[in-house]
């Protein structure tokens, strides 16, 4: 018997749309044991680096490993916090300044668990997920983004 669980693909091509986020919220209205949601949205910033403005970030990833890491982070959040649901979506490909690249959505009976888990998942993603970002400038030059 194959006991290996299927790992969910977290990546979405291009930006995460506000409509996707609204849909996710709507899907949880049938889950009436939830009393609190928390959401983290990562947005691409038009940073100025050496006088040049970032117009977009092109995300790439070691996708197989990243999906495994996202799954481990999600599972560990369920162990640490009393959650009803937890979802993670991350962009790959080009996301323009002002568009969304990360969507973390936690749901629980009460607010504290939803808040804490959302922060935990976001910090873990920044530290552990093998996702890479190329910051693209208007003149088509680029630098590589590094999380701190």
């Amino acid at each position: 018997m194959n006991k290996e669980k299927k790992i969910k693909n977290v990546f979405i091509e291009g930006p995460i749309t506000p409509a996707k986020i609204a849909d996710s919220i709507a899907h949880h209205q049938v889950k009436t044991n939830i009393g609190a949601h928390d959401i983290f949205l990562g947005q691409v910033r038009a940073d100025v680096i050496a006088g040049k403005i970032v117009k977009a970030i092109e995300y790439s990833a070691y996708e197989d490993m990243a999906n495994k890491v996202f799954d481990e982070i999600r599972e560990s959040a369920f162990v640490k916090y009393d959650l009803t649901c937890a979802h993670i979506y991350h962009s790959k490909g080009i996301v323009k300044a002002g568009e969304l690249c990360l969507f973390v959505f936690t749901s629980s009976k009460h607010r504290t668990m939803a808040f804490d888990a959302c922060r935990y998942i976001t910090e873990e993603i920044k530290a552990k997920a093998p996702v890479f970002g190329k910051e693209l400038f208007e003149d088509d030059s680029h630098v590589w983004k590094v999380n701190h």
Partner: peptide, 10 residues
């Protein structure tokens, strides 16, 4: 084997 530069997710 994979060689991974600094991460930039999120």
């Amino acid at each position: 084997v994979a060689i991974l530069p600094p991460f930039a997710g999120g």
